[in-house]
Every structure is written in structure tokens, then in C-alpha cells.
Design a protein around this nucleic acid. Structure first.
Lengths: 177, 177, 177, 177
DNA sequence: ACTCGCGGGACATCCCGTTTAT
DNA sequence: ATAAACGGGATGTCCCGCGAGT
């Protein structure tokens, strides 16, 4: 399950074979359809929900690590950038890749993606409100922050350097200071 | 070729079969490897470069359609949002989907994605400079704008509504006014 | 066990999965290999022997229901035809389907099939002798009757109508009057 | 294709794997779905139609090999018995096995079985009419002959001896002399 | 410039038999 | 005697890339 999340994050849904998952995880092939009768789709949903919840916790921790909003956001982007670089620009957003290719095909996967994004948006919005943004503006600004980070992860993966992430970091910190 | 771009935009690289492409396009099956000896990868690269160049032209046109920067950016997002909604939330960014899943696998595809993003970034940067941003800041702000739009397209596809795009539009317009 | 017989009669041995049996019967999955350590084969043999013995009793009852041999045979065919039609041409001979596909593979299954056929042949032979046929001729005629009925069940299932069974019924009644 | 017919005759539809067919025939695995886009079912139908037509020709030849009806029928049964014994009681009717197990599942297979049986019935009926049977009686008697032969093939395969076939042969010859 | 067919290697699914716990 | 989980093999399907034969 955890292995599935890692592979999905790097390769996406269609490019990740079930054989690859069982080979990489060491899990028994036959047990898969016992635990996940829904097959590949159900497995992907489970992996996405797990990764989404885990990252939500991480986001909340980082955002509450500093009283200064700009510093908190900066640390958030820095953490993602560090993870991306450490993996050789393989580990971007664990949800976005699958969401983009399977959103039009599978409703359960789309739901899992939406829920993950909503959780992250909620954490960002809460932090923004605690920094003085009022309700509606906090939601819009949180959406901008999340979208900009997601987009910067794509750009950085395509370029294999951290320049886009760094630029977005600067801008976001400047905006929210 | 054009059909390939449409399918890749919606389904991504691995989920799009060669049979599907030839069936949807009506093109002769055998001549594919005459025109594209590199096979599926080369075909995808061609589709991405075509779509990237086409969208670059579109971006430049919209950005130069108004002297007011905020209005120009607003129109850009509106155009993308209209296309997304018209396609039933199927047609997002024609590059991002493939870039995310194949960036770690195929270098030519990654190059094509980077070139497309660079072209769009260049158009945005030029427009920002003409609106008064100085060199380095223009590049950073252009990166923020592109990243935010890319991210908002992902969020909107996952939610099947235009709320994230609208929020990002408001924020970007406010920022660049 | 009884469920197994029903499924085997309709689908044959290889097409009937163990999962299907436990799902259809509501029996506990784990106790199957307690009662039938031999697995699927032993289960099939038990089902065949049960169905064979049950049908042997039915045949004897029908054959002894009339002093007139022709009338008795006619009732036998009528009963089978009614069962076939009532099941939507799904329930033919409970032995023949499995016998044909597994005869070359599994000796226990072949034995069970042979025993069932022998029991039915014995009942027919006894009735024919009581109607005046002498020993050797009774056996041959019983074989003809059983074979013709088996064959007619196949033809009727393939056609989804009772015409072949009716034709064979007429001929057999005429022959044995 | 021809290999498919042989395997289906011996093992039936569900027990015959596609792997087994391609291994036994030497045909390329990937070409299979080019020639038979319908997959296993279409392949089985083709095999059944081929075997049915071939056997129809054989039946007509044997039936016209003698002016004496009883002798012609005797030769027909003898030929089938010889083939059955020569194959170690593996090659029975090439249609019946598949018909029994797939008749309830696949309409194309049922159609192919019905057509084969009809062709054989037609050949038998024609021969019976030429021997003096009138129309309706010829059809009924032909049905009896075919059904008895089919049934005797089942009984002989289950017993692994030719006794049932020999008995049916005697009876049929006696009946039609 | 295009068709037909080859070729073999995945793919996701599901099966049957078993062990491990109660 | 029941249940959950293991284990690996086999299923039918379909894919992508390449040749001969026009």
C-alpha cells in the first residue's frame, strides 16, 4: 500500500503495473484481491488517501512551526523542494499525477484527489485566518498558495531544477508577509 | 498527430494506446512508423510541441489584448476556464499530464515539456516587463502566475468545478493590478 | 454439495469455480477442505454420485409407474423434457457435461460417471426384461434408450427447443411398444 | 484453428487455455487477436464450424458408400468407434463437449453447435428418405440415430470401452434394415 | 506511402490449495 | 470446524514495434 503510493507518485496510474507493485513491495500477489477486491482502482484510492492524510499532517506541523506566516510558508515550500531534490526530481505531489490522468476515468480516484486537496486547503486556510486574513479572502489566498505550489512542482520536475519552486517561494512569502 | 495531442491531454501518456490513436484519427496504422520511427515517444513529443506552440501563440494574443495587466491576466484565466468547462473538465493543460507521468522516464518528453513551459513563461515575462516589472521580479512573478494557473487547473479538474480557477484569477488580478 | 451438482450440470467442471460454489451455497469457505481434502475433484465426484443416485431412483420410479413399457418410457422422456424446459434449457444430464470434459483428465470423475450411467442402464435393463426382452437384447436396447436420451438432451440444449427430445420420444415409444 | 478444434474436442471450452492452444499450434500469440478480434469465443466458433463441416462431409461419404442402409449406418458408427479407440478414448464428438458447457453462456457457440447438428441431421435424413422413409418419419428417425450415436460416444468415453457404441450400432442396424 | 500480419511480452484479474489463527 | 490471509500460477486480453509484400 505504501509502496503503491510511492510508485503512483512517480509514474502515475496507468504507467504503474500491478506486477511492479507486488515486486517492489514483496507482498503476495494473491492476497491483493483479498484485501482490495476492487483491484487496481481501490488500491490506488487507498494509497492516495493515505498519502493525502499523511501530507496533511505534515503541512499542519510545518505551518504551526512559526508565528510568522511568511516564514511558515517558506518552510513548507522548502520541505517539498528538499524532498523533490533528494529523490532526483521524482517525488512531486503524490496526488496530482494520478488526479490528472485518472480524473476523467474513475470517480473514486477523483474523489480521493478532491478530498486530499480539500484537506490541504483547509490547513492552509486555517493558518491564513489565524494570521489575520478574513474568511473569504483566506480561502482564495489558500487556493492560490496550494495551486502555485502544485504548479511549481510540475515546472520543477520538468526542468529538473528548483528554480520555479524558489521563485514561487519568494513570491508567496512576499505576498503573505 | 492532432488527435494524439487531444488524447494525451485528457488521458496522459501511458493510458493512451497507439491503437486508440489510430482508431480515433483514422490515420493509417502502418504509416505511423514511417513518419515517426521513434514510435510512441516521438509521436508524443510532436504532439506536445505542437500543442505547446499553439498555446504560446494563444497566450501572447490574449496578453496583448488589453493595456491593463490585470484585465489581460483575467482574460487568460477565463479562456482556460471556458475551455475546461466546455470539455466537461477533460481538457486541462495539454502538457502537464504527460510531463508528470513521463518526466522521470523519457528525456525527450521532459525536454518538450520544459520548452513549452519556457515559451509560456517567456510570454508572461515579456508582458510583465511591459507593465513595469523589472527583470528579475518579472521572471519570478511570471513563474508564480504560470504555476498558479497550472495548479488551479489540476484542482478544478479534481473538483469538476471552476471554483479554484476563479479564486486564483481573483488573486492574480489583485496582485498584478 | 447440492449446489455444486447444480452448477456442474449447467456449466461443467472447468467453468465452475470454487469461489462460485461457496458464494452460491453460503457454505463456509474454510470448511470445504475439511470435508473434502481432495479439493475440487473430490467435491465434483461427490456431487456426481449424489446426482447419479438421485436420478437412478427417479428413473426406477417412473419406469415402474406403468405396466405398458411404451408409456413408461414416454413418461421418462417427458419428465426430463419438462425439467429441461423449466430451467430454460440449462439443466440437462447432470453427469454428461462433466464426464465429457473431465473424462480424459481425472479418473475418479470418470469412475463416478461410469457408475451413474451403469446404474441408469441397470434400471432400464431390468424394466426391459420385465417387459419381455431377453437378457442380451435387453442390455443392448437399454443402451440404445439411454444413449438416445443423452444425445437428445444435447441436441435440445443446443437448439433451445424440445423438438429432438420429442422425436426421440416418439421413436423409442414406437420401438418398444 | 485446427489445433483449437482438437483441443476443444478433448477438453471442452473452459478447460482449454489460450496458452495451450498457441503452444500446441506454434502460432504467434499476438496474431491471434488480429485474426480473431472476438477472442476465445470467436476462435472456438471457427473451430466448431470447421469441424462440423468436415464431419458433415465425412458422414455423407460414408452414408453413400453402400446401397444397403443398415450397412451404411454400421460403417458410420464403425468409423467413429475406430477414431475414438485410436485416440485412447479422447476424441469423441467435436461439438458435443463444447456445446454442453457453453450452450448456456455463449450464443454464438450455441449457434455453431446447432448448425453442425443440423447439417448432420440433414445428411442422415436425406439418406433415410432415399431408403424409403417418408418425410416426417425420416426426420424423427434421423434424430434418433444422431442422438443415439452422440449418447453412445459419451457412454463409451466414460467407460473407456466400445461396448455402448457396439450395442447402439447393432440396434440401429437392426432398426433400419 | 500503406496493409497485413508477426512476435512476444506485459496487463489486470482471479483461481485453487494452504496455512495460520481461533 | 471456521475464518482470514497467503502464495504463486494461469487466465484472457491487448499492446507496441517491426517486417514482408504490394
Amino acid at each position: 500500500v505504501h509502496t503503491t503510493a510511492r510508485l503512483l507518485r512517480r509514474q502515475g496510474y496507468a504507467a504503474t503495473g500491478l506486477n511492479e507493485i507486488v515486486a517492489a513491495s514483496g507482498a503476495p500477489r494473491g492476497s491483493l484481491y483479498f484485501h482490495f477486491p476492487g483491484g487496481k482502482e481501490q488500491l490506488a484510492v487507498a494509497a492516495m488517501r493515505g498519502a493525502g492524510a499523511q501530507l496533511a499532517v505534515g503541512i499542519e506541523q510545518v505551518l504551526s512551526s512559526s508565528d510568522d506566516l511568511g516564514e511558515a510558508l517558506g518552510r513548507l515550500v522548502d520541505g517539498l523542494a528538499a524532498g523533490l531534490e533528494a529523490s532526483g526530481f521524482a517525488d512531486g505531489c503524490p496526488i496530482a499525477t494520478v488526479a490528472l490522468e485518472a480524473a476523467g476515468t474513475s470517480e473514486p480516484i477523483r474523489d480521493a484527489a478532491r478530498d486530499a486537496f480539500d484537506a490541504w486547503l483547509g490547513a492552509l486556510g486555517t493558518r491564513l485566518r489565524s494570521a489575520g486574513f478574513d474568511g473569504a479572502e483566506a480561502v482564495r489566498r489558500a487556493t492560490l498558495v496550494l495551486a502555485a505550489i502544485e504548479g511549481a512542482l510540475i515546472l520543477s520536475r520538468a526542468r529538473r531544477d528548483l528554480v520555479p519552486l524558489a521563485a514561487v517561494r519568494e513570491e508567496l512569502v512576499g505576498l503573505c508577509a
